[in-house]
């Protein structure tokens, strides 16, 4: 009797176990499907608006396709790429773009650091908050709007900037955007005006990531400002700073709307950055195959930038770990 009893007991235990196990598996499956299901809308969005157009563009870059010729697209292999690589005007634009990227990022980073440090150091200054809000305003204005009012300010007949310059130099008001010598610099200044606040923000974030004790130790150890920056602020804040620089680099590389509404690439081709060339080919000449090929090259360049950056970042992190 005892023997049978113990066996039936064992059986019911296994039954119970398997029932729980089954429920567990069911929950497991649900736990895996639900998150995937919730991801579907965003994935769909991403595929429709990002992946498909990109693939489409890559495909198009191997075709000779002009929207106005009325002829069907014709596969021409890498002819578009070959054409671009031997095109002097593309190389010229490309080098201008590199100068543009380098100058904007360098100036914006330097100014951003300087102003960021000033704001950070003046935590108790009255009106600091208001000043911060005001300084961030340019970043929130669309570049096209900013360009339009800068075009007005640069205007030789009634622009305020031109007027001030003529007052200072005692000469006739310059046409800054219309002069081959000054147009690039004038456009650069607008970009700096718009994007320096971003680097201020990044600088403040980087400074916020510096542990308080380290700053206090530096104070007590009587470290000079330069040493404090070099040994306390930079080691702690460099990843955020570098992220800001990367974002600015990628963004600056794509600059188009700002230039387009300021100078349309002119005078001549003085301010014709690579994105302007791309736009012209695609939407003024409607040579979509060629434009796609250029876009693919730019995409690869941007990916290369990012990879180099990530490589450096990872290596530094690995060193520190």
């Amino acid at each position: 009797m005892q023997h049978i009893g113990s066996r039936s007991q064992r059986k019911s235990v296994t039954q119970k176990l398997s029932w729980w196990a089954q429920l567990g598996h069911a929950l497991d499956r649900r736990e895996r499907t639900l998150p995937s299901l919730l991801l579907v809308p965003v994935l769909l969005f991403f595929i429709i608006w990002n992946i498909i157009p990109t693939l489409w563009m890559v495909g198009l870059s191997f075709y000779n396709y002009s929207m106005i010729s009325g002829r069907p697209a014709r596969f021409i292999g890498i002819t578009n790429f070959a054409d671009i690589l031997v095109d002097n005007s593309v190389w010229l634009s490309f080098s201008k773009t590199l100068i543009w990227v380098f100058s904007t990022v360098a100036i914006e980073t330097a100014l951003g650091l300087l102003l960021g440090l000033l704001f950070w150091g003046s935590a108790k200054l009255p009106g600091r908050r208001l000043a911060l809000t005001m300084i961030f305003a340019p970043m929130m204005i669309t570049p096209v709007a900013a360009s339009i009012f800068f075009r007005l300010m640069y205007d030789p007949t009634f622009g305020v900037i031109s007027w001030v310059i003529s007052l200072l130099t005692g000469q006739a008001a310059p046409n800054l955007l219309g002069d081959r010598l000054t147009a690039f610099g004038a456009a650069l200044a607008v970009d700096v005006w718009i994007w320096t606040p971003f680097m201020i923000l990044i600088t403040l974030a980087a400074l916020g990531s510096v542990p308080r004790a380290e700053l206090e130790a530096a104070q007590i150890d009587k470290l000079s400002w330069i040493k404090k920056f070099r040994y306390v602020i930079l080691p702690n804040g460099k990843f955020i700073l570098m992220l800001g620089i990367l974002l600015r680099t990628i963004d600056s590389f794509k600059t188009m709307d700002l230039i387009f509404s300021l100078t349309r690439g002119g005078p001549g081709n003085t301010t014709e950055l690579i994105a302007i060339v791309l736009y012209r080919k695609a939407f003024e000449a409607f040579n979509l195959g060629w434009a796609s090929a250029l876009a693919v090259i730019l995409l690869l360049t941007a990916i290369a930038f990012t990879s180099i950056y990530l490589f450096i970042l990872n290596r530094k992190q690995a060193e520190e770990a």
């Binding site: 004790a213 380290e214 206090e216 130790a217 150890d221 040493k227 040994y231």
Partner: peptide, 28 residues
């Protein structure tokens, strides 16, 4: 003109131990 040691070890990152101890001495 004091010295202080905090609860959490504070060192200046990215440099060696010698340089860490040397930094405040440089100011003196």
């Amino acid at each position: 003109n004091i010295g202080m040691v905090f609860q959490y070890p504070v060192v200046y990152k990215g440099i060696n131990v010698y340089r860490n101890i040397e930094l405040p001495l440089l100011e003196d």
